[in-house]
């Protein structure tokens, strides 16, 4: 019973992470992409906890979803928010 729950949680989280990653790649709004990427990091750290690697999970949570996101946002603030090219927007 516990095993199935574990696997179901695992699969749901993985699908969520993949969906967020695809959205981040496709999105034109770079701030949105950054936030989605931070979310992917958060899910990844959760999966690391499930895999019993708490050390890696702590590093992933703080680096992936705090530091990297802020560095990217600072970089975007100094450049442009929307990707160029294409017709619309």
């Amino acid at each position: 019973m516990m095993e199935e729950l574990f696997i179901a949680l695992w699969v749901i989280m993985s699908i969520l992470a993949i969906a967020m990653a695809i959205h981040a790649v496709l999105s034109r709004d770079l701030i949105k992409a950054t936030i989605l990427m931070a979310g992917v990091s958060l899910i990844a750290s959760f999966l690391f906890v499930l895999l019993r690697a708490p050390d890696v999970a702590m590093a992933e949570a703080s680096i992936g979803s705090a530091l990297t996101a802020i560095i990217l946002v600072l970089a975007i603030r100094n450049t442009k928010r929307f990707e160029e090219g294409g017709g619309e927007k």
Binding site: V25, L26, S27, R28, D29, G85, G86, E88
Partner: peptide, 8 residues
């Protein structure tokens, strides 16, 4: 948001 699939 409309995605531009070709570029991606």
């Amino acid at each position: 948001e409309r995605y531009d699939i070709h570029r991606s």
